[in-house]
Structures are given as structure tokens and as C-alpha cells.
């Protein structure tokens, strides 16, 4: 297998994903198969080919830095799991 358990553990941590114990073995196996599959790209001759980031080669459009949206905080925060006085609450970060 192209990936081992430690590598997958590392990738999961980078992606901030906790895998359940039962999920782990099959994740290693299936991710390895995907990596093996995309490895065939290595055979393509791409010397001097410019990487393509946008299908129409367009560049990112910029807009003037002006306030255009109305303040809709209360409405938006109705989706938040935990808020107080308009702030999002998370577990204590600084001891």
C-alpha cells in the first residue's frame, strides 16, 4: 500500500478530521488506492507546460474596497451553535 497508518494519521490531523476507530483501516486502504490511481499522472510528458488554474485563463476580478452589505449579524448568527453578545463562543484557548 502506498500510504501507511502514520501517514494517514498525519493527513487526518492536517485536515482536522477525527476518524472513528472503525473507519481507520478502510481509510488507509481506499486512500492508498486513490493515490495509486492518480500516480499514473507521473507518466505524462509535461516539460514546459504552464499549469492551468482557470479553465478560461481569466484572472481574478477585483472590486473597490467599499462597504456594500448591510449589517445582518443577528440573522446570520441564528445558524451559529453557540454565541454570546454577538460573539462566537469556543472552548478556552488561553489558560
Amino acid at each position: 500500500m502506498s500510504l501507511d497508518k502514520d501517514q494517514v494519521q498525519h493527513i487526518a490531523m492536517l485536515a482536522r478530521l477525527k476518524l472513528a476507530d472503525g473507519e481507520f483501516a478502510q481509510t488507509v486502504e481506499k486512500l492508498s488506492r486513490i493515490v495509486d490511481f492518480v500516480d499514473q499522472l507521473g507518466q505524462a510528458k509535461t516539460d514546459g507546460v504552464v499549469p492551468m488554474a482557470h479553465p478560461l485563463h481569466a484572472t481574478q476580478r477585483l472590486r473597490p474596497d467599499q462597504v456594500v452589505e448591510v449589517d445582518d449579524r443577528d440573522h446570520i448568527q441564528q445558524n451559529a451553535p453557540l454565541t454570546e453578545n454577538g460573539l462566537y463562543l469556543v472552548p478556552k484557548v488561553i489558560e
Binding site: V35, L41, G42, A44
Partner: peptide, 24 residues
Amino acid sequence: MTGTYVLSAGYYDAYYLKAQQVRH
């Protein structure tokens, strides 16, 4: 996780950059 892997240090050129070239 596949995406995290192909963008991670040491693999970016071999996978992500390469795929963008083949996309071209």
C-alpha cells in the same frame, strides 16, 4: 484527505502542479 495529501509539503509538485499541467 486526498486533497490535503496532494497539497501537502513534499507532494505538491508531484501531484497538484503536475495535474494542473496535464489539465492544460
